[in-house]
């Protein structure tokens, strides 16, 4: 999946720079240099994020997460789903199969939806990176809104599909 995602990006970048160097060689060079500097600047953060994801993956096994998501009664199950979705890191390709396992294990649709939504919408591990790019106010506001949204969307999904929210 990443392969063709990367291929599409590569084509976009290729076309942009073809245009850039044809139109204004100096500008093209400037853009490459700028990109290079940005890349080197952000590389340590990037490496750290992936190494942290690796730690999560090995030290917080998926089986533990699966047994804990949606645990607790009522409102507590909502928060445990959202909390685990926020903390868990990893590619979405592994999120959907986990959702299926959770449903099979008897979790409510709302709990699974909240878990998956917060997985893709809220970035806990990447908060330091988001700080460095957008600043604290933007980052905190965005993540709080995303967290609330993940819960609201999940509850509505449960209501529409199962006729119950928890």
């Amino acid at each position: 999946m990443n392969m063709w995602g990367a291929a599409i990006y590569a084509i976009v970048v290729g076309i942009s720079y073809l245009y850039a160097f044809k139109k204004n060689k100096k500008g093209g060079k400037k853009a490459v240099k700028m990109g290079g500097i940005q890349f080197l600047k952000q590389l340590p953060m990037l490496i750290s994020i992936f190494l942290l994801i690796g730690l999560f993956d090995k030290f917080v096994p998926k089986s533990i997460v699966v047994t804990l998501v949606g645990k607790g009664k009522g409102i507590l199950s909502v928060f445990s789903s959202a909390a685990f979705g926020t903390i868990v890191m990893g590619p979405v390709s592994s999120a959907y199969p986990m959702g299926e396992i959770l449903l099979k294990k008897g979790a409510t649709i709302a709990a699974v939806a909240i878990f998956l939504n917060s997985w893709v919408m809220v970035g806990f591990v990447t908060i330091p990176y988001e700080f460095s790019v957008f600043g604290k106010r933007f980052t905190i506001t965005r993540n709080v809104l995303a967290f609330v949204g993940a819960i609201v969307i999940g509850l509505l999904t449960g209501l529409l599909l199962e006729g119950r929210i928890i």
Partner: peptide, 18 residues
């Protein structure tokens, strides 16, 4: 993920200039 990131950074810098 590195190829994607390199593309994003290069595309961003292209947009910033052009």
């Amino acid at each position: 993920m590195l190829p994607v990131f390199i593309c994003v950074v290069l595309f961003s810098s292209f947009l910033s200039v052009f």
